[in-house]
Simulated scan of single mutants.
Amino acid sequence: MKNLTIKAGNCNHRRYLPRLLDLVVTGVVDPTAFIIQHEKPTAAIEAYETFDRREEGWLKTVLDLA
């Protein structure tokens, strides 16, 4: 026992999501502008691992199924 405390949290989605959806619906914000990586489904695990390591250039990723 090392007297360590680990805390984790999440953002307050319920507070921000309605306003963000309004911005998308009215066209003020285009969420596709944040998608900077397109990967094939066969590369999904590697893509998520790279995103999880917060490597540069990995803000949002889309798995292209077609």
Results as ranks from 00 to 15, higher is better:
Thr5His: 15
Ile6Gly: 11
Lys7Trp: 07
Lys7Cys: 12
Ala8Asn: 12
Ala8Thr: 11
Ala8Phe: 15
Asn10Ser: 10
Asn10Ile: 09
Cys11Thr: 09
Asn12Asp: 13
Asn12Trp: 08
His13Ala: 07
Arg14Lys: 13
Arg15Leu: 14
Arg15Met: 13
Tyr16Phe: 14
Leu17Trp: 07
Leu17Ala: 14
Leu17Ile: 14
Pro18Thr: 06
Pro18Met: 08
Arg19Glu: 14
Arg19Ala: 15
Leu20Val: 05
Leu20Trp: 09
Leu20Ser: 08
Leu21Val: 12
Asp22Arg: 13
Asp22Lys: 13
Leu23Met: 13
Val24Asp: 04
Val24Leu: 08
Val25Trp: 15
Thr26Ser: 15
Gly27Asp: 03
Val28Met: 06
Val28Glu: 14
Val28Thr: 14
Val29Cys: 02
Val29Glu: 02
Asp30Gly: 00
Pro31Tyr: 03
Pro31Leu: 04
Phe34Asn: 05
Phe34Thr: 08
Ile35His: 08
Ile35Met: 10
Ile36His: 14
Ile36Cys: 13
Gln37Pro: 06
Glu39Thr: 04
Pro41Trp: 00
Pro41Glu: 00
Thr42Gln: 03
Ala44Arg: 00
Ala44Val: 04
Ile45Lys: 08
Ile45His: 08
Ile45Leu: 08
Glu46Thr: 06
Glu46Arg: 03
Tyr48Asn: 03
Glu49Trp: 08
Glu49Met: 09
Thr50Cys: 03
Thr50Ile: 04
Phe51Ala: 10
Phe51Glu: 01
Phe51Gln: 05
Asp52Gln: 11
Asp52Cys: 04
Arg54Asp: 11
Arg54Phe: 11
Glu55Thr: 11
Glu56Ile: 15
Glu56Trp: 13
Glu56Arg: 15
Gly57Thr: 10
Trp58Pro: 01
Trp58Gly: 02
Lys60Phe: 06
Lys60Ile: 05
Thr61Gly: 06
Thr61Ser: 12
